[in-house]
Simulated assay, not measured.
Amino acid sequence: MNNLLTDIAGVRVGHAGDMTLASGVTAVVFNQPMVAAMDVRGGGPGTREGALLDLANTVERIDAIALSGGSAFGLEAGGGVQAWLTEQGRGLNVRGAVIPIVPGAICFDLLNGGNKDWGRFAPYRDLGYAAAASAATSFTLGSVGAGLGALTANLKGGLGSASAQTSDGVKVAALVVVNALGTVTVGDGPWFWAAPFEVDGEYGGRGLPETFTPDMLTMRIKGGPAATAVENTTLAVVVTDAALTKTQAKRLAMIAQTGFARAIYPVHAPMDGDVLFAAATGERTIDPLIGLTELGMVAANVVARAIARGVHAAAALPLPGALPAWRDRFGN
């Protein structure tokens, strides 16, 4: 296990970004179509093919997931991922017409100082294609892909990943883009809210403060009183090698999203667009009650860890007035 989403066999991840733009795309590509569902908790989401993932609807399996910066402009990234899959002959076959199924979600990074004057067409379709074309089992964390331009209330955001196994050896892993309204750290210190779930010092090993002061619990949000519904989002993809129905994948997504609350303060606000996708390869049978409960519990822990890892690995944007990275303030 490499503590990455790609610890689940059949999953690849690719990034594409533009530092001048200060934005990018991450593509999660599945070697075979996977059962998937989605859970939305934030008050300002931006999604592609979200209705398709509703339990009442017919299609159960997807070919890839596109995560992008750029707010609503970034929804075009899914078209780029779809174009690459089309070239590979991948997709749902409807009487000879092959249609790649690519849900996606976006985060708002339009005010991070990058040059967003892109002319008539936004660059996200091409970035989506490049991200899918570069997808591999090894990938970078931090200020890359959809996390390139991500920010939190007090520090540079980024892209993180983590993995674990249940007591029965069922694998689950997460990839998260952290562009949160709130903070991932406690007060003005180096401690991560997700500290209780840390494994092997993966985000600095600082633990939690000895005591919590009222100042540490004061609300710190991006934009302060001027915060709006479209400025913030945390996006996550959770994948397991368990055999799940679409309904069970939805339950996994719901439980796993509690990991957001373990790592971000505050979270799921009217100003957030928090979205989590859950997908399953179908390799291992699990008990539908106790087994799914444990899987969700471990998935939530993995999501919390991935959030902290994303901020811990991030690098500040090389732009005037840019927020510092965790490492700038607290070292390694």
Rank of each mutant, 00 (worst) to 15 (best):
A130G: 00
G43P: 09
I221R: 13
A36G: 04
K246I: 06
K250L: 14
G145M: 07
G189N: 00
L151G: 05
K116L: 10
G310S: 14
A243C: 13
R48V: 15
M19W: 12
G331N: 10
P123T: 08
F73E: 05
P45M: 06
T245G: 10
R120T: 06
A300I: 09
A37T: 08
R48Y: 11
L235N: 02
G331T: 11
T183K: 04
G189I: 03
V40P: 08
A146D: 01
I221V: 15
T247Q: 15
F30I: 11
G46Q: 10
V40D: 06
D117M: 08
G69T: 02
L292I: 08
A300L: 05
G24W: 08
G145Y: 03
I62Q: 01
P209G: 08
R120V: 09
P320I: 04
D168C: 09
E294F: 13
V237F: 00
L276S: 10
A173Y: 07
K250R: 15
D272W: 03
G44W: 07
V186I: 05
E283L: 10
R305Q: 11
A51E: 15
L235M: 08
S163V: 05
T166S: 12
L67D: 01
D200M: 06
K246P: 07
T285Q: 15
A174Q: 02
H15G: 01
W84N: 11
L127T: 02
R220K: 15
A64D: 01
V311Y: 10
D18M: 10
V302L: 07
I307A: 05
Q82D: 08
G42Y: 01
M38D: 03
S134F: 00
T293D: 15
G205W: 00
L159P: 05
S138H: 08
G182F: 02
Y265S: 12
G14I: 01
V239S: 01
R284H: 11
M216K: 07
A173C: 03
A227C: 14
L181T: 06
I62Y: 03
E198P: 04
P190R: 03
L319P: 03
V302A: 10
I286E: 02
D287T: 00
R262T: 01
V94F: 13
N154M: 14
T233N: 05
T245P: 09
V59L: 12
T47Q: 14
G273K: 12
V59M: 08
A135W: 08
A153K: 04
G44A: 12
T152L: 08
A195D: 01
F192M: 00
T47S: 13
P225I: 14
S138I: 11
K222V: 12
L217D: 09
P100S: 03
H268T: 02
A133D: 08
H268P: 01
L244G: 05
G169N: 00
S138C: 08
M38C: 09
H15C: 00
G89R: 07
L235A: 01
F121H: 13
R251Y: 14
